[in-house]
């Protein structure tokens, strides 16, 4: 067993786990943050995407020990002062989710896209979120939501 110390959504955590434990399992089981989902465990579907030291990363193909000392962001940390984040608000407004299972990974991925490209074209949005598979929405609602959120986030910067 090894000790893992890390910050998630600004809060310090410490846990002990086997060296082989996946980061996503550590987040869900040891930290109790079940908003991050497991969809494929081989790094393709993107449901498990989190912020890892400020960049989007797949927590299903990382080990918890790799996150020792890291700062993580998960979907649970997006709300501010009891209000939905503008991107969450846009997803609700534009029907960017149905079953909601890919949504946490989709939100984090879209935030990462908007961080690096604050005013993406539709094509760039599609390419940016193509790292996450959604089987419900046909992606249109998600594209509309990201497009609508982009200027709001850009102006808040």
């Amino acid at each position: 067993m090894v000790t893992v110390r890390l910050k998630v959504n600004g809060v310090a955590h410490e846990g002990r786990c086997e060296p082989r434990k996946l980061l996503v399992d550590f987040i869900r089981e040891d930290l109790g943050l079940t908003g991050t989902h497991v969809g494929c465990e081989h790094g393709i579907c993107g449901a498990c995407t989190i912020m890892f030291n400020g960049e989007a990363a797949r927590s299903c193909i990382m080990l918890a020990v790799q996150a020792d000392g890291a700062e993580l962001g998960t979907v649970e940390g997006l709300m501010r002062d009891g209000k939905l984040h503008p991107l969450q608000e846009a997803f609700r407004e534009h029907h960017g989710l149905q079953c909601g299972f890919c949504t946490p990974g989709m939100l984090i991925t879209a935030l990462d896209l908007l961080r690096t490209n604050p005013s993406p074209s539709d094509r760039e949005i599609r390419e940016g979120i193509s790292a996450v598979l959604c089987r419900c929405t046909g992606y249109q609602g998600i594209v509309n939501a990201v497009r609508a959120a982009a200027p709001i986030l850009a102006s808040g910067r």
């Binding site: 869900r28 079940t34 908003g35 997006l78 709300m79 997803f91 299972f101």
Partner: peptide, 16 residues
Amino acid sequence: EDARLLTGRGTYIDDH
């Protein structure tokens, strides 16, 4: 449904 699903508070079979 959206508020809970957007904030990671859904209750799927693997969650609780």
